[in-house]
Nucleic acid binder design. Structure first.
Lengths: 148, 148
DNA sequence: TTTTAAATGAAAAAATTTTCAATTTTTTTT
DNA sequence: AAAAAAAATTGAAAATTTTTTCATTTAAAA
């Protein structure tokens, strides 16, 4: 993920490549962990990048809506992570350490068809998140005898 | 959905049946449309029910976590709807009128197994929402010639 | 009834959204 | 290419929503 990908995507989707949007994209692409809006604001301000907090919220919302950024649900409130996968995909979140994994394959379409038939809805999209414990957290739980 | 169901569920899950929790449950069960925390606060206050706004937020979070209440994602910000279905289920949200439908069947388990094998995660739960247009909104769109 | 653990609510703090004039990006026109 | 026009985005301030804190109250267990 780099500036070229950002440009390509924004061109394709006919979105404006504004300064704040690129700043946030770049900052997230360097981040080691998911960041909140406030954290982004502080990071960028420290680096003497001029940006308003309002724009951060708005840019994050946009980037999320086009699937470039994942907003981590539950727990680590309002933190955002750049997606490595292009296009439609889903996520697994570790409830213990917060690790996020991306899943490229989506197996919803068959079910989705059935739901459309039975409900009369025209389904255009969906969101799915898995929650659980990553291998590492599972192992350390077993060591501690909290399970298994 | 009634007070007895509330009691039964809270007993089973060993949760405390506090006054605010029941108040919110009852209020949502009468509501014609999904309500926000603030709207609940106003409704209850008008009816001379003593409750703090903080408790509303906390109770909604609890009720959501046990699947009794659905928090509508995107759009109609932070509005909550009582679930009619008991136990695990999913939702479809109409992007036009906001209507919410519950889906009793879940067809994730097979996929979930595969994901566990391939990732090493132990998946404990998931959340899935479908989005689209309900039959009525689809029809009116066609009338207006906005779509094929 | 007493004890214990958890939930409540008022106030304060923090996060998020809205408003709207000014600025920036893109498109259109020279 | 450059300038002008059109359209969308920005950001400061205000408004609103949500979360945190912590002493008090309440619910369940003993």
């Amino acid at each position: 993920m780099n500036k070229e990908f950002f440009k390509k995507t924004f061109k394709e989707k006919k979105l404006r490549m504004s300064h704040p949007r690129l700043l946030i994209y770049m900052e997230l692409s360097q981040a080691k962990a998911p960041l909140s809006a406030q954290e982004l604001y502080q990071c960028l301000t420290k680096k003497h990048k001029s940006i308003g907090l309002t724009s951060i919220y708005r840019s994050l919302e946009l980037l999320e809506s086009i699937g470039m950024v994942f907003k981590i649900p539950n727990g680590s409130n309002g933190r955002y992570k750049l997606c490595e996968l292009e296009g439609h995909h889903h996520h697994i979140v570790c409830k213990s350490c917060g690790k996020v994994l991306e899943l490229g394959l989506c197996e919803i379409s068959g079910w989705s068809e059935k739901v459309m038939e039975s409900t009369g809805f025209k389904i255009t999209d969906h969101q799915l998140n898995f929650f659980g414990f990553c291998r590492e957290c599972n192992l350390s739980k077993e060591e501690k005898g909290l399970e298994g």
